[in-house]
Amino acid sequence: MNHLISVLVENKPGVLARVATMFARRGFNIHSLTVGPTAEEGMSRMTVVAETPEVEQITKQLYKLVHTVKVTEFEPGQAVVRELMLVKVNADPKRRSEVLNAASVFDATAVDIGSSSLTFQVAGTPESLADFLEMMRPYGVSALVKSGRIALAKNSKTKAAAGT
């Protein structure tokens, strides 16, 4: 099962390696991991999607790392979750407008146009990215890259309109 964990860490050299090593050492599988600065100076936030039945152990082992300040596991609906994807879709000139039309249903932006392909940038929930990919598959997806999920706790208890 996938768990979404947000980890606030001190921004010290090697902190990513410490987290990654701990996951490897304990046999926890990382599905995706992003890291970047936060509003607070000297701190970084990692968003980890981990595959494990044992999320409590992950949380506790993360806390054992000296540079870990706060660990939050998000249940579905508790956080705004976003992911960025770049997708290169086959589109020769005669199908280009069809592909662009299809893409316009989503919040997808064409960021590069080649002679036989289009590259889209899609930002959204993991589900909307999956839907977009599904839509593009018939045209042929020749390359794709995802940023990994980022998440922030919701302020209100109500679900955000854009989904989980």
Partner: peptide
């Protein structure tokens, strides 16, 4: 050294 010993110490430092 710090990479090698990170998994077998409570914590470690590389002083720069």
């Amino acid at each position: 050294t710090w990479g090698i010993t990170a998994p077998c110490t409570k914590h470690n430092y590389l002083v720069t």
